[in-house]
């Protein structure tokens, strides 16, 4: 199948995601529980998105790792997958979809505006460590995204109306505890991502660390996650303060994953 066919399938997937997100937002506002429909649409979107990525992979003979279009598409896919698993396994937090899906809408909108042009996989990307490194990174970002949804509810609850919308969710202390768990998973996987990235860099460029923009900002994000986890233990932070720290981590991680490619020609400067 050609590029047009691949993009058609991707757009249908995006429509399914947008419908799932919109229904979940209206569900929260109208205090309805369209959870089965939302989960069904998310899974439909994921299935179609998987097909679009697989077709591109088969056509170009490499995974979605090089261009901004590929990086955004694969991250929308992995974030949707991470959130779908959380949505399925943790029914008590399902209304957080109303916060998480708009974040993903932004990424989907961005995805629709970048060129889906094709490129070759650099020779330094022909390694199993690429998959391991990126896989760990996607789990990290997925865990942080769920934590952001939970933190968003904690922060919105200050507003009386929003408190009503999210009244079905557990109390803020419990949400903060769940968000801490997600951050802990994220910390483990970001550590694994940095280790796998160092092995790949040593293998490909003869150095495990070279201060390239992406590795430096990924390490700064790791430090911020470390600070947020330690701060919770040291100061017994309120859920609101804990929530702000999670937002801080997400902003740092988001800028690292999607901002650095703007200042670097390839995901890793000098990668080719």
């Amino acid at each position: 199948m050609d590029l047009i066919g691949e993009l058609r399938i991707l757009w249908v997937a995006v429509v399914a995601y947008v419908l799932a997100g919109s229904i979940s937002i209206f569900g929260v506002l109208l205090k309805k529980r369209p959870e089965r429909t939302v989960l069904g649409l998310m899974l439909l979107g994921l299935a179609l998105h998987t097909a679009a990525i697989a077709l591109r992979w088969q056509r170009l003979d490499h995974g979605p790792f090089v261009t901004m279009f590929e990086i955004l598409s694969s991250n929308v896919w992995s974030l949707m997958l991470a959130f779908s698993i959380a949505y399925w396994r943790l029914p008590s937090i399902r209304p957080v979809a109303a916060i998480i899906m708009p974040i993903l809408f932004t990424m989907m909108g961005w995805l629709m505006t970048v060129s889906p042009g094709e490129t070759h996989l650099p020779p330094t990307y022909h390694t199993v460590w690429l998959f391991i490194h990126i896989g760990f990174g996607k789990v990290f970002l997925g865990a942080v995204l769920v934590a952001v949804g939970l933190s968003g509810v904690i922060l919105l609850r200050r507003d009386g109306r929003a408190d009503g919308w999210f009244s079905r969710l557990p109390d803020s202390e419990r949400l903060s505890e769940l968000s801490y768990r997600c951050m802990a998973i994220g910390f483990v996987f970001e550590t694994l991502m940095l280790i796998a990235g160092a092995i790949w860099a040593q293998d490909a460029w003869g150095r495990y660390w070279d201060w390239d923009p992406l590795e430096t900002w990924a390490f700064i994000t790791w430090i911020i996650v470390g600070i947020s986890l330690h701060a919770r233990l040291t100061f017994r932070l309120s859920p609101r303060l804990g929530a702000w720290l999670v937002i801080g981590v997400f902003v740092s991680a988001f800028l690292t994953f999607f901002g650095v490619p703007f200042i670097s020609q390839t995901p890793h400067q000098g990668a080719v």
Partner: peptide, 30 residues
């Protein structure tokens, strides 16, 4: 130092995962 660094990093991350696993197993997610 490279192989030693790798060894120490793997031990660190395994120990961290073990710690959180033990901690979170005390109360179910749901």
């Amino acid at each position: 130092t490279m192989p030693w660094l790798l060894g120490a990093s793997v031990i660190a991350v395994l120990a961290l995962a073990w710690h959180f696993w033990k901690k979170f197993a005390q109360q179910p997610w749901n």
